[in-house]
Design a binder for these strands. Structure first.
Length: 272
DNA sequence: AATACGGTCAACCGCCGAGAG
DNA sequence: CCTCTCGGCGGTTGACCGTAT
């Protein structure tokens, strides 16, 4: 696999790594640790650029790398994460211990991309079936309403999920309620259509690609709710739809347990 | 047996952001 | 500020391999 060895004009080796080169690099990292990759060539005589050394270590030589086929569970998780995060392979890999972004990217491009459409329904349905009893049509109407468990009022049926978080919250518990208009009598009787989900603020921020300092407010800058207006606006704008909330729930449900601090959350009725 | 073809995956490339000077 | 270096990321390439023809 890979590429045959070849040399650049500046004498650097390119292409496939040899076992001898792997040994040199591994020994170097054992002594000096990761980082300072540009020093590897200087200190070991290895004719590889720093980037190549880093890549080889990260994608192949690291001792914690998991070998072998992607399991069914891992595959499902990749699909769900990709649905959420797109081609952000490093983030996806971060949720799969022992797997590298390169490996997941390759796996996606060679195997999963074709199946993507087939999987879309499968990904969303387990959550629907477990927690969100109702027809798929109800999901499409984007009438999920979000409140927190700490302020157990239900917002009025709205098309916008609007949530504010206190400055030190790390986890965010949300209750998802099917909108009253889409609940059948039987659903209502069984409290079906409601489910609760834990969210981690950092992940929400990663998901939304925003700075979580704005949420926590520790060390100055963030402050209380009033200072977070920009965050709230973005949150409202970016994950207003129920489908995205469900996707986020799906993602975090599949992640490991989050260490939870006491929450400091309030909700506001949806606006729109 | 020879060839073509498509899948796989290690490795490279170019871009970008952070941090140091 | 500006420049430079480094590390990280996603996209792409290309050698290898198995299978079909």
């Amino acid at each position: 696999m890979g590429r045959s060895p070849r040399f650049t004009q500046d004498g650097l080796n390119k292409g496939a790594w040899t076992a001898h080169e792997d040994t040199i690099l591994t020994d170097y990292v054992k002594v000096h640790g990761e980082g300072k990759w540009s020093n590897v060539a200087k200190k070991t005589g290895l004719k590889r650029c720093g980037k190549s050394c880093r890549l080889r270590w990260m994608n192949y030589l690291r001792p914690d790398i998991k070998r072998g086929n992607i399991s069914h569970d891992e595959e499902e998780l990749i699909i769900r994460l990709h649905k959420l995060l797109g081609n952000r392979w490093s983030l996806i890999a971060g949720r799969l211990p022992g797997r590298t972004d390169n490996e997941i990217k390759n796996y996606w491009n060679t195997t999963l991309a074709k199946k993507e459409k087939d999987f879309e329904l499968k990904v969303s349905r387990p959550i629907v079936n477990n927690n969100y009893v109702g027809s798929d049509d109800a999901l499409q109407t984007e009438k999920v309403v979000v409140t927190t468990v700490y302020q157990p009022h239900r917002t009025k049926c709205s098309s916008t999920n609007f949530v504010s978080m206190g400055p030190s919250s790390k986890n965010l518990k949300m209750e998802f309620h099917k909108s009253p208009s889409s609940l059948s009598k039987e659903d209502d009787h069984n409290n079906a259509g409601d489910f609760m989900m834990d969210f981690n603020v950092e992940d929400i921020c990663k998901f939304l690609d925003i700075n979580d300092d704005k949420v926590r407010g520790d060390g100055g800058g963030g402050g209380d709710g009033d200072d977070d207006s920009s965050f709230l606006v973005k949150l409202e704008a970016d994950i207003a739809s129920s489908s995205e909330f469900l996707s986020l729930a799906s993602f975090l449900e599949s992640a490991e347990e989050w260490p939870g601090d006491e929450l400091n959350i309030s909700t506001q009725p949806g606006r729109k």
